[in-house]
Each structure stands twice: as C-alpha cells, then as structure tokens.
C-alpha cells in the first residue's frame, strides 16, 4: 500500500516519524485504558447530585452518621462533609489493606482533597456527591489536605487520617 502521507512530505524519515508519533499516542492511550479496565482504576465519576444547603437533613450526611462504617462484606465506607475550613469528622482511622469507599459532600463552596503518598483524592463540588474507593497498604499517619482554593482560610483546611496495621487490631 502506498503511504498516504506521501503527498504531504517528501522526506521518508519524516514520514516514519509522523507514523511513530501517532503510534506513540495510541500506545499510551491503550496502556492507560488497559490498566483502567484490568485494575479497575477510574477517577471519581459517579455523577450523583445532592442539595448542599440541606446536607444536615439527609440521612447519609447528617452529623451523627458521618465517619467510618463497616459493610457486610468486610469493606468500609467513610462518609465525610467538607466545609470551610475543615473535613468532618476531623479524625479518621482505617485498617491497612482494606477497601475503603469514601463518600464526600460539600456544605458550601468548592473543595478538594488529597492525602499525600496515597492515591486518595477527589474534587468536592457543591451540588454533587464525590465517591472513590481505595485501600492503604502502609500503616501510618496521613493528612487530608484541601487542594481547591476555597477562601482565605484555605491553607488551614486539613484533617488527619490514621492507617493502622490490620493484624494489630483493625478498625474500631
């Protein structure tokens, strides 16, 4: 088959480079897609709406129901509210190597959260519930830092995540 690029460039080396560039782009996309599907790695994308002004009236995000809960299959669900300037509840403790599903909602403006050295992260958008699942292989103290500018007190918006060794007791 004749190279369709032949009418565009005279230089055979250049044509080879164009094909290689296309191949590279496709390859990177393919590898990322493969990992996303085979290891089930997806960004938080649940598209679930909620009225942020009435979080306290919902069952899930009412103050008494926030925090860590054990599910029937042994995994955990952590429900949290982000509001200027803190994450509630401010201290979370989970065991190592256990799937943890985080569900978070904002009570006011846009927030974000990430815990350095883990892959726990999401944007927390007023009007929407954020959900992601991860697990923590290494025990230790981690921080939840707000990473979306949310007002003048943004810097001080952070909370504590403690991961305890599963064999040494696990979650309360």
């Amino acid at each position: 088959m004749q190279d369709p690029l032949k009418t565009l460039c005279e230089d055979p080396l250049e044509r080879r480079w164009v094909w290689m560039s296309l191949f590279l782009a496709v390859l990177v996309g393919f590898v990322l897609g493969l990992y996303a599907l085979s290891s089930n790695i997806h960004p938080p994308s649940n598209v679930e709406t909620i009225d942020s002004t009435r979080l306290h009236l919902t069952e899930e995000f009412a103050e008494d129901n926030l925090g860590v809960k054990q599910n029937e299959d042994g995994s955990l669900t952590v429900t949290m509210v982000a509001a200027r300037y803190g994450f509630f509840p401010p201290e979370i403790e989970v065991p190592t190597d256990t799937p943890v599903k985080f569900r978070m909602a904002s009570a006011d403006v846009l927030h974000g959260v990430h815990a350095p050295y883990t892959n726990a992260a999401t944007m927390i958008v007023p009007g929407y519930v954020s959900e992601f699942t991860t697990s923590f292989p290494t025990a230790g103290k981690y921080s939840f830092l707000c990473n979306e500018y949310c007002g003048l007190g943004h810097d001080s918006m952070w909370s504590r995540l403690t991961v305890v060794d599963k064999s040494a007791g696990g979650a309360k």
Binding site: H114, Y117, K141, S143, N147, Y149, D155
Partner: peptide, 13 residues
C-alpha cells in the same frame, strides 16, 4: 511530596 498548589502558608503536619 503532596504540596497543594494555591496555598499561602503551610500550617500542616
């Protein structure tokens, strides 16, 4: 190392 962008100080751990 986990530093957020858009912060005016670092009152963290």
């Amino acid at each position: 190392d986990g530093q957020p962008r858009r912060i005016s100080s670092t009152p963290y751990d």
